[in-house]
Amino acid sequence: MDERDVAILTELQRDARLTNRQLAARVGLAPSSTLVRTRALERSGVLAGYHARVDLGRIGRGVQAMIGFQVRPLSRDVINGFKTFALGQPEVLSVYVVAGGDDFLVHVAVPSVEAMHAMVMDRFSSRKEVIGFRTTLLYEHTQNPAVLPADQEP
């Protein structure tokens, strides 16, 4: 990656809806060169996707929580199975495999506390590998709008 690639990544993080022509003008390249570079960043996996940010409260999913799960036995198969199960649930936004007291943190968005209780009790806690869980209700969820520096060495 060179400084032009970094400029493209920076602009797309600010606004992924830019047209190629708008992006080219912002980074000071010809549209054809910008398109070639953007496609190369996509093929290499550096640009992993383009996403719309949805206001969950406006679609009836205003109650969010982070749920910590402990599972046993702690094996690759159990971890992969639980992760696959969790990601298949419509309320689940993200799944994190973590170290510490919990094995997983699962970010969920539901319509109500009652819906969350039903989801946890009926679907998650009934799984044989789940030996414990704790729910942390999120009062507020704010994403960092800052652009991540793309020019740092990994």
Rank of each mutant, 00 (worst) to 15 (best):
S112Q: 06
L148R: 14
V78R: 09
V27Q: 03
Q89G: 02
E129C: 01
M116V: 04
F69M: 06
T34D: 00
H51A: 15
Y139V: 08
V36C: 00
R4Y: 13
G49R: 03
E140T: 02
L93C: 14
G45W: 08
V92F: 05
P90A: 04
I59K: 13
A30G: 14
G28M: 07
D102E: 07
D2F: 07
R21E: 13
P31I: 07
D122G: 06
V54H: 10
V97W: 10
T142I: 14
H51Y: 15
H107A: 11
R14Q: 08
A109G: 03
A7D: 05
S33D: 08
S33E: 11
S112M: 09
M1V: 08
V71K: 06
D151N: 15
Q22I: 03
E91W: 12
R26N: 00
Q143G: 06
G57Q: 08
S94D: 12
A7R: 05
L137H: 02
M119C: 04
G62M: 05
A24C: 09
P31H: 10
A30F: 15
A118T: 15
L18H: 02
A25Y: 09
A86Q: 03
S126I: 06
D122R: 15
Q70N: 13
V63P: 12
L74H: 14
T38V: 05
V97D: 05
V130A: 00
Q13I: 02
H117V: 04
R123H: 02
V130C: 11
L138Y: 03
G81Y: 12
V6L: 01
V6C: 09
R123P: 01
L148D: 12
A99V: 09
Q64P: 05
A30C: 08
A24W: 00
T19R: 09
V6A: 12
I59C: 09
H51L: 14
V92M: 06
I131R: 09
F69Q: 06
E114T: 12
K128H: 13
G132K: 04
H141G: 13
P154V: 12
R72T: 05
